[in-house]
Design a protein around this nucleic acid. Structure first.
Length: 454
DNA sequence: TTTTGAGTTGTTCGA
DNA sequence: GTCGAACAACTCAAA
């Protein structure tokens, strides 16, 4: 049996290849695990469903789909097809590890072997350590180790004739809500199409354009990497590392692997500050915190680049990386809310929502994460907007109230002459004043330092 | 064990 | 308008 989780592809699939090589017939199984899907919204669920539908096609309709607790369902299916072994791609996340321990134990009692293969990372999380044998906490030394680590070969598509549905009904699916209108196209073939598009264009200007949400300058591969429609190995082998732009993209893939390593070492950092002293950082909980949070979620903070990003998230199930940083900084440093609120909202609405990348990047913004974050790194939403969306076309695409405002005024619409017709009351005034809240954040940081000194 | 150099992504202020 | 300095102190990783 092959139990699929975050490896929804047929090419370059070590667990699939190994299962087929070691057995007479292989039954592929996917389990809708309610526990895992609870924090996911319509975008990720429908993206996942689309990936499964296409995968089922690639597997000649032999994919067995079930709902429930894997510790019950996997042994059940294994029993009904008389499986001798269950193959998986390893999962090093906090939930995945605990779940796999339970499943492995249940299978062991039933006399079924547990066969983990390589994870959805180029370098297995947990394997890279410092000279002293501890986990890396700083990106740069990690990236050096990662670049020189040996990686497995890229595998092709194995012959699939030995796949079987074991005679089981295969279509026991939960109800999946429809995804947002602008959602990425799911599946392995869409992943390869996107990769080819990226390789034929944007990657060659990646250094310059990756930070520009108004351009199609980044890879948009994150949802495919999230569900293993594509393995990072397959991406890395296509890069020309003699070119700085390609190396820059490789670095971004390395960040993904770094945070997977960090989470494997510190599973608690998904829910708690990586630096424990940050537990004491003051966040707003009393009114108007609730109303502030709602305004942020719905994209009506009155800061155009922030609102554009939050609306793109709801419309596409995706947000440009630069804008993720800007919106996250706004929640944490301007609204003084707990990063976990924002992280949960992102996890709900992102098709690519990945626990390690999401939680630890949020912690990076909040200052509680691995980076020795300079306390003064507070994004100014106006400056960021001007620098990375100079014409304002990204904002205009997502904030129709500002469609008629020109580049000079669009980042600070509250400053535009009141005599301008037609764009008065639609767009909200700023929820807070950035310069004031910046000082407030610095003051809270100062108090955290003072508390530590005591 | 001690020392040393360095740490993704920024902003503001004053010259 | 441009540019460089200042903005804390600490901890990590490796020599």
């Amino acid at each position: 049996m092959l139990w699929l989780r975050r490896d929804l592809r047929v090419a370059d699939h070590p667990a699939l290849a190994r299962a087929l090589a070691s057995s007479g017939a292989v039954v592929p199984l996917f389990v809708w695990d309610e526990e895992l899907l609870r924090p996911a919204g319509a975008a990720r669920l429908s993206f996942l469903a689309g990936c499964l539908r296409e995968l089922n096609g690639s597997l000649d309709g032999r994919l067995v789909v079930r709902c429930g607790d894997p510790a019950k369902v996997v042994p059940q299916v294994a029993d009904s097809v008389a499986a001798t072994a269950v193959h998986v791609s390893a999962d090093h996340g906090p939930y995945g590890r605990a779940r796999d321990r339970r499943v492995e134990e249940a299978l062991r009692r039933a006399g079924v072997a547990w066969r983990p293969s390589a994870s959805p990372y180029a370098v297995e999380p947990g394997t890279l350590v410092t000279g002293a044998g501890s986990a890396f906490q700083v990106f740069t030394p990690f990236s050096k180790a990662w670049r020189s680590a040996t990686r497995g070969p890229v595998l092709g598509v194995p012959p699939l004739a030995l796949l079987s549905d074991g005679g089981l009904a295969s279509d026991l699916w939960p109800d999946i809500p429809a995804g947002p209108p602008g959602m990425p196209a799911p599946g392995e073939s869409a992943a390869h199409a996107r990769l080819e598009l990226f390789l034929s264009g944007a990657v060659n200007n990646y250094d310059r354009h990756r930070d520009r949400p108004d351009l199609d300058g980044c890879s948009r591969l994150s949802p495919y990497l999230r569900f293993g429609c594509l393995h990072p190995r397959q991406v890395l082998e296509r890069l020309d590392l003699s070119r700085p732009d390609h190396r820059r993209f490789e670095t971004e893939l390395c960040w993904r692997e770094f945070y997977a390593h960090v989470l494997a070492d510190r599973p608690d950092s998904a829910r708690r500050p990586y630096r424990p002293e940050w537990e004491a950082f003051e966040v707003d909980r009393d009114p108007p915190a609730d109303e502030h949070f709602r305004a942020w979620c719905e994209g009506r903070t009155g800061y155009p680049i922030v609102d554009a990003g939050m609306r793109q998230l709801l419309h596409e199930g995706w947000m440009h990386n630069r804008v993720r940083m800007i919106t996250a900084s706004f929640l944490v440093k301007d609204l003084h809310l707990d990063w976990r609120l924002g992280a949960r909202w992102f996890m709900r609405h992102l098709a690519d929502g990945d626990l390690a990348s999401n939680q630890l990047n949020w912690q990076w913004v909040a200052g509680s994460g691995t980076d020795a974050a300079p306390y003064f790194r507070i994004f100014n939403p106006v400056t960021q907007g001007k620098r990375f969306d100079p014409e304002g076309s990204y904002i205009r695409a997502w904030v129709p109230e500002l469609a008629g405002v020109g580049p000079d005024e669009i980042h600070e619409p509250w400053r535009r002459a009141v005599t301008l017709p037609g764009m008065g009351p639609d767009y909200p005034l700023p929820l807070v004043e950035h310069p004031v809240e910046r000082e407030e954040s610095l003051a809270r940081y100062g108090r955290l330092l003072a508390r530590r000194g005591r």
